[in-house]
Every structure is written in structure tokens, then in C-alpha cells.
């Protein structure tokens, strides 16, 4: 330690002044150091972005990841809610997973239709925008529905705040006789900013375009102006 401090105080045995070459060498060394540090920082940033936590639903029936820094608010074995409490919006970005046994003769398309009806009555200003056929977990057919609604997150907290337009995406699929709905939601303004976090979730589901592509079906008219509470699947 003493030697280090001595070298810090008197790095050279003489008092000889550095020449232009030494100064250029110092400049280059500083530039290399700074660039190396920034390169390291990029790695740390990517590490934060991709850090995830794996959660099991139905005792391993479905394993889904969410960003590690998101808070798991509930996990009852049949579903979960994980929330990003660091969201800039009053409406925290979240993922909600629900599941239920598939009804006899119920198809994925019909399940999506019924869910659309349910959301239209429960959510304020619900509007379905797009639906597409995709695949999850290496070949399981899935339907992805994009919609929007208006939420009032500050009301429950007793604070006066503006309602928020929420953008959401539901991923519906059937696995092991269970219908799973993975719902990604965020303030519409912050949707793009949340893309990286949502990718952690969709990547864990291995969400891919369907191998037999069918054109995305435009919204077929689920909408509501009901001023009911948002939420519920």
C-alpha cells in the first residue's frame, strides 16, 4: 500500500519532463481506457436488459420468464401478475398470465372471441386493433390480439390523475388441455420503450410467426365505452 502511494506521489525517479511522444502515448492510453470502460458498460446494460426470472404455472405445465427487476405481485399456481414498478407512467407495465381448463369443443378462435366479449364489457373504451396467428413453444398454435383501453390507475390510490390509454397484447394458446392467456400491458406512450422487457417474456414463450402464415385479421369490432374497472381476465 505504501509503495502504491509512493508511486502515486512520485511516479518517476527523476524530475524529467515528458516529451510530446509521452504525452501522445498518455492521450492514447486514456482514450483506450475510456472506450474499454464504455464497452464494459454496454455489456452491463445488456445484462440488465436480459436478466430474467422463470416462473412455473400449473406445476411446470408452463414456464414463463419475466424481467428480473419486475415485481411478482401474485402467483397462485394458475396465473401470475408481474409489474414493473419503475415504469415512468402511473400505469405500471405488467404481464398477467391466467389459465383455465379448455371447455369441451372449445377452439382457440372461440376462446379468443369470448375473451374479446368479456374485455369489451369490463374495460373502459376497449378497442381491439389487430389479431394474428402465431406459434409458441415450438409449434403450438397461438392467437395474438392487440387492443387498447383506458385505465384509471390513480383513482384507487386516491390521487387525482389523468386516465391512461393502455396498449395491450394477449397471447392465447392451449397446452395440456389448459387455455393460457398471457397479457402484456403498458401505457401506450411507453409501449415501444417496454419492447425490450416484453421481449424477455415472449422469447421465453418462443413466440414466432405461424409456419402456415395467414394474414393478420383486422379487428372485427369488439369495442366498448363501458366505464367499468379495468382488469380481470
Amino acid at each position: 500500500m505504501t509503495m502504491w502511494i509512493d508511486r502515486l506521489i512520485k511516479p518517476s525517479p527523476t524530475n524529467e519532463a515528458p516529451g510530446p511522444r509521452e504525452q501522445l502515448r498518455n492521450d492514447i492510453a486514456v482514450i483506450v481506457t475510456v472506450l474499454f470502460a464504455l464497452f464494459l458498460a454496454l455489456g452491463i446494460r445488456n445484462q440488465v436488459y436480459t436478466a430474467s426470472r422463470l416462473v412455473s404455472i400449473h406445476e411446470g405445465g408452463l414456464r414463463i420468464a419475466h424481467p428480473e427487476r419486475w415485481v411478482l405481485q401474485s402467483n397462485d399456481g394458475a396465473g401470475l401478475i408481474a409489474v414493473n414498478l419503475g415504469s415512468p407512467s402511473t400505469y405500471d407495465s405488467r404481464v398477467e398470465v391466467t389459465s383455465r381448463p379448455l371447455h369441451p369443443d372449445e377452439t382457440l378462435e372461440r376462446a379468443r372471441f369470448e375473451r374479446g366479449l368479456k374485455l369489451a364489457t369490463e374495460l373502459s373504451s376497449y378497442r381491439e386493433m389487430e389479431a394474428a396467428q402465431m406459434e409458441v413453444l415450438n409449434g403450438i398454435p397461438a392467437l395474438v390480439t392487440t387492443y387498447g383501453f383506458v385505465a384509471d390507475p390513480t383513482r384507487d390510490a386516491g390521487v387525482t390523475g389523468l386516465p391512461v390509454v393502455v396498449e395491450a397484447q394477449d397471447i392465447l394458446f392451449v397446452k395440456g388441455g389448459m387455455l393460457y392467456v398471457v397479457s402484456l400491458r403498458a401505457d401506450a406512450v411507453d409501449w415501444e420503450a417496454n419492447a425490450r422487457d416484453f421481449a424477455v417474456i415472449t422469447n421465453s414463450l418462443r413466440l414466432r410467426p405461424a409456419k402456415s402464415p395467414s394474414a393478420a385479421t383486422s379487428a372485427d369490432g369488439f369495442s366498448s365505452s363501458a366505464a367499468t374497472l379495468e382488469g380481470g381476465n
Binding site: 508511486r7 511516479p11 524529467e16 519532463a17 502515448r25 492510453a29
Partner: peptide, 8 residues
């Protein structure tokens, strides 16, 4: 480094 030669 302005007044002395220093290690790299």
C-alpha cells in the same frame, strides 16, 4: 503527467 514522465 504535465511535469513528469509517468508509467503508461
Amino acid at each position: 503527467v504535465r511535469f513528469e514522465k509517468t508509467p503508461l
